[in-house]
Design a protein around this nucleic acid. Structure first.
Lengths: 152, 152
DNA sequence: ATTATATATTTGTACATACAAATGTTGTAA
DNA sequence: TTACAACATTTGTATGTACAAATATATAAT
């Protein structure tokens, strides 16, 4: 379905506006599907992203600022996100001894296990959600998005 | 900046996953810029979208369900969104006489005036945010997104 | 007519987000 | 060494979102 039909846009919207709305609408649909998968395992999308980032640290603990830099979605209040993950036993937090303003956050064994369980499922879901496009089309789409963003 | 650099993704992420993350990351950046513009005029993005949809009705009042269908972003609790807009005097709500389960929501003169004021600004912002792509690239991007979504 | 089912919206609750202000820590300049 | 600015995180408050349950009205079945 084209974006005009999906959102029942009748009026003459200019191409730039239409494209930006299309990106946001598509993004929302993808996010909904992904969130549904994570929910079965008791995680929200931002919580999953924090775990994924921490695993990427390969043992090296991350500060809050370090996590925020790498988050896909808006991460206002990473403090409270981490609070939730601590409550679930997925991560640990301690004050950085070298710089007591900072905080060292690390993923726990149960957190790693959960990610390992999710790995094939997220990969499968993403593959399904992208299955309408060929490899070349995916490459083009990536390039266009990278180019679109190119300034900030 | 490519998506790998932007999110400092080191590990080998498959193309499908990378593309979907790229869409969501780009969407978030666009949304942030747009929200900043609206905020200067006292509106949130969902509130703006409701007003835009109501104007599209051209005088014909819309039910809640009708608004939800057309919303770009998730619209959980359109009731309370409309509450806020009523408090700002931008819309009116009354029970539909023909079907008392439904509600008729209509944009007010001040709501229309605000949209009119925003029209050139949103168009300008969108044009700027899409300015890195040529017309052909924008068309391609639209097509790829439409194709990607094609099933649900 | 009475009951059941479907439709449309509202309300409640938990959680997430935005943003400003507060807290505590470190580095630096007089 | 004291004062001040910069940094890193936390806390407060208002708003937004997700989702289930509640309410109210309309339609259908017996």
């Amino acid at each position: 379905m084209k974006i005009e039909e999906a959102l029942k846009i009748n009026s003459g919207l200019d191409l730039s506006s239409k494209t930006l709305i299309n990106i946001q609408y598509t993004s929302r649909l993808l996010e909904e599907k992904f969130a549904a998968l994570l929910k079965e395992h008791g995680l929200s999308t931002p919580q999953f992203n924090v775990l994924r980032i921490l695993r990427g640290q390969k043992g090296k603990p991350a500060s809050l600022a370090c996590i925020q830099e790498r988050m896909v979605d808006r991460s206002s209040n990473t403090t409270r996100l981490v609070d939730k993950l601590i409550a679930k036993g997925m991560v640990e937090r301690r004050i950085c001894p070298a710089n007591r303003r900072k905080v060292e956050i690390e993923i726990t064994k149960p957190g790693l296990d959960l990610l390992k369980e999710l790995d094939p499922l997220t990969k499968k879901t993403n593959a399904e959600n992208a299955s309408n496009l060929t490899e070349n089309e995916l490459l083009t789409l990536n390039d266009l998005l990278d180019k679109l963003r190119n300034d900030e």
